[in-house]
């Protein structure tokens, strides 16, 4: 069984800029890969190569075994894609948009009509089916765009920042739609600059910046690379920190760091919740009171900062590079 998506040494220049600089990717069938990186990291360029919209300067890529450069038509038949912009015709209604795409997928007219109805109801757009897409909200446009991408029920879907610019509610609705697609067996490659999105949807995550892959693994593996879980303990005012410090040193792994001012003690632990339980039991046995105790896990944001030296989401999240260029 070939990998759903396989890419090796992809390189793409735009003038002097190496937008993609040796990217390797593998997405096994039935899994979700999150391509995570800030704006300009090379995510969209990578996606555009995989979806046959750009030809790479070097390297090669296959989708279900078909080469994206040599055999683009085969790739196009097995691949659904939704880009950063909801690619819908604003002057057409939701129904007309889906019928148009169906016809262009070479469906017979009656099949295209029936398929449009099915997708409209599946994506909860039936009520808006006869309104022009111009009147749709951002979330509705994305759903219509996804419906178009799903039309032939492709085995592999590529979504480029499917929720950028959406409000949190629409984002969650879209996540549910995406989860249902994955549950139904679709292999998914998803780019995002939202850490939470990658954490929520992806089986494995590929962190990319300046056109290079910085790290690859499951969310947990990536977090483990940044550091272990740790227990943070806060004592009441006036309480002596020594006894609690000894407890944490014996239960934890490594040095206890103490923040005198905040009366906070932090120790890395190897056994997660079990270590936390151990510390609480010992503190109770010794009668040491505490205000707060918690097990903290590294977040993907910690991973990102550790890998790139900057936060993923500090860049303008919804800035549209193409529009920016056209304004100049």
């Amino acid at each position: 069984m070939p990998e759903a998506i396989h890419a090796e040494g992809l390189v793409k220049h735009f003038g002097d800029v190496r937008a993609v600089d040796g990217v390797d990717l593998d997405v096994p069938q039935g899994t979700v890969l999150g391509l995570l990186g800030p704006n300009g990291a090379g995510k969209s360029t990578t996606v555009r190569i995989l979806t046959t919209l750009l030809t790479p300067d070097a390297g090669h890529a296959t989708v279900l075994g078909a080469d994206v450069v040599k055999d683009p038509d085969t790739v196009r038949r097995s691949l659904g894609m939704a880009g950063q912009f909801a690619a819908v015709d604003e002057f057409l209604t939701g129904r007309e948009n889906l019928q148009l795409i169906g016809r262009l997928y070479q469906l017979r007219k009656r099949d295209a009509v029936a398929r449009a109805e099915e997708l409209l109801s599946l994506f909860d757009l039936t009520d808006a089916a006869d309104r022009t897409a111009k009147t749709y909200s951002g979330g509705m446009r994305r759903r219509l765009d996804l419906a178009a991408a799903m039309l032939m029920k492709p085995a592999v879907m590529v979504l480029d920042e499917p929720t950028s610019g959406l409000d949190p509610t629409s984002r969650r609705v879209l996540w549910d739609v995406i989860r249902a697609m994955v549950a139904d067996g679709t292999t998914l490659l998803l780019t995002t600059q939202y850490l939470e999105e990658a954490d929520q949807l992806a089986d494995s995550i590929c962190v990319i910046d300046h056109g290079r892959v910085l790290a690859y693994g499951t969310s947990d593996e990536l977090k483990a690379r940044v550091g272990n879980e740790r227990v943070e303990l806060v004592l009441p005012e006036g309480e002596d920190l020594t006894g609690a410090g000894l407890v944490m040193a014996s239960e934890g792994q490594g040095d206890v760091s103490i923040e005198e001012q905040a009366r906070k003690l932090i120790v890395p632990v190897s056994d997660g919740a079990r270590s936390l339980g151990g510390i609480i039991r010992r503190l109770d046995e010794l009668g040491v009171p505490f205000d707060d105790i918690a097990l903290r896990r590294p977040t993907l944001d910690d991973v990102f900062i550790a890998l790139t030296g900057r936060s993923a989401e500090t860049d303008e999240a919804t800035e549209d590079v193409r529009v920016k260029e056209s304004v100049k």
Binding site: T52, R77, F85, A86, I101, Y105
Partner: peptide
């Protein structure tokens, strides 16, 4: 082109 519609068409087997 700006709206991505051309990309959608280009990704179709048409």
């Amino acid at each position: 082109m700006r709206k991505g519609l051309v990309d959608r068409f280009r990704s179709l087997p048409m």
